[in-house]
């Protein structure tokens, strides 16, 4: 993980806001944060530096801030100066703390950015850890289309020209949602959830052969787009291969691994006359049924087996 302090300042999130403002030490704004844990520097301000990890973001709550004020009042600046001699990425104060002028000068001289936020310390720590977890999450990019169909996140893959975008367009027309066309950013979050995102630049744009680049949010409204979605299923589209056997029963699930996480995968052959969007809708509903505990293919098979065992007439 490597995040510049600048990125922390620029970070916007509805779920986990940080609302940081720069107080001093602009010179160090390019400093890199390399570890995803934080430190409360109470002990260190007191002069105790055993097991101190300066690479961590230093979070000052009300307690640390009050101690800092006390030190400044007593003009006992040695400990503060010593603290700022370490290679600290940045210090963050909660509760909109007003940094004393002396400390501001020390941080300016050391080139260590001091930030401040109106949030409570607990919220700040929670949100910053969420942000670090997100940034440190393993990631990859996949060529495909990500859509949400009946609440199920589906990653459509397949060769270029097989009709992924056209298929997604039809699904959007039917009221389902687009996350991203062509380039899907995937992150494995700490709870083992695979999340699909659109790239910042191209999000909600699509390329349809013969029409060109279109903006889905503008054409169909914001109701049919989403920023991110968990990937529940992969649907791979491929041109119908005469020599290949496709799944007829659906008794066994096939999986594909993304970032080490197993995801159900269906292979759907494409052929003129086959209405792929409806097949995808059906597959998605079937997936929901399975997660609710009903496996249609297995139930059907159980019924047949029990009938045969009992020797009853099926017809």
């Amino acid at each position: 993980m490597e995040i510049a302090v600048k990125e922390l300042l620029d970070y916007h999130s509805l779920e986990h806001p940080l609302k940081l403002k720069l107080v001093s030490g602009i010179r160090g704004i390019e400093k890199k944060i390399t570890t995803n844990s934080i430190n409360r520097p109470g002990l260190n301000l007191f002069g105790f530096y055993d097991n101190f990890v300066p690479e961590r973001v230093q979070i000052f709550g009300r307690g640390e801030a009050a101690f800092l004020v006390k030190l400044v009042k007593e003009q006992n600046l040695e400990n503060i100066k010593k603290f700022f001699t370490f290679d600290i990425p940045c210090c963050i104060f909660s509760h909109d703390f007003e940094l004393p002028k002396d400390v501001k000068d020390i941080s300016e001289a050391a080139g260590i950015p001091v930030l401040n936020t109106g949030m409570s310390t607990a919220m700040l720590i929670h949100n910053i850890e969420q942000f670090f977890a997100f940034e440190a999450a393993p990631r990859t990019t996949i060529h495909g289309v990500m859509i949400e169909v009946f609440g199920i996140g589906i990653l459509l893959t397949g060769e270029s020209g097989v009709g992924k975008s056209e298929c997604a367009l039809e699904l959007i027309e039917r009221g389902h949602r687009l996350i991203s066309d062509d380039v899907v950013d995937i992150r494995l979050l700490p709870n083992n959830m695979l999340m699909g995102y659109g790239s910042k630049l191209i999000k909600h744009h699509m390329e349809i052969r013969g029409v060109g680049i279109i903006n889905i949010a503008h054409l169909f409204g914001v109701g049919v787009v989403r920023e991110s979605k968990q990937i529940n299923m992969i649907i791979h589209l491929e041109n119908w291969d005469e020599n290949k056997q496709y799944d007829r029963l659906g008794l066994e699930d096939e999986y594909e691994e993304i970032l080490g996480e197993k995801i159900t995968r269906l292979v759907i052959p494409v052929q003129p006359g086959r209405n792929i969007p409806i097949i995808i809708e059906t597959a998605s509903m079937n997936y929901r049924l399975k997660t609710m505990g009903y496996h249609p293919a297995k139930e059907f098979n159980n019924m047949i087996t029990s009938l045969i065992e009992r020797g009853e007439e099926i017809y």
């Binding site: 060529h143 270029s160 066309d181 062509d182 380039v183 790239s199 630049l201 390329e207």
Partner: peptide
């Protein structure tokens, strides 16, 4: 993928 125009733009 080099066959994806949005990919290249991204």
């Amino acid at each position: 993928n080099a066959k994806s125009i949005l990919g290249i733009l991204s």
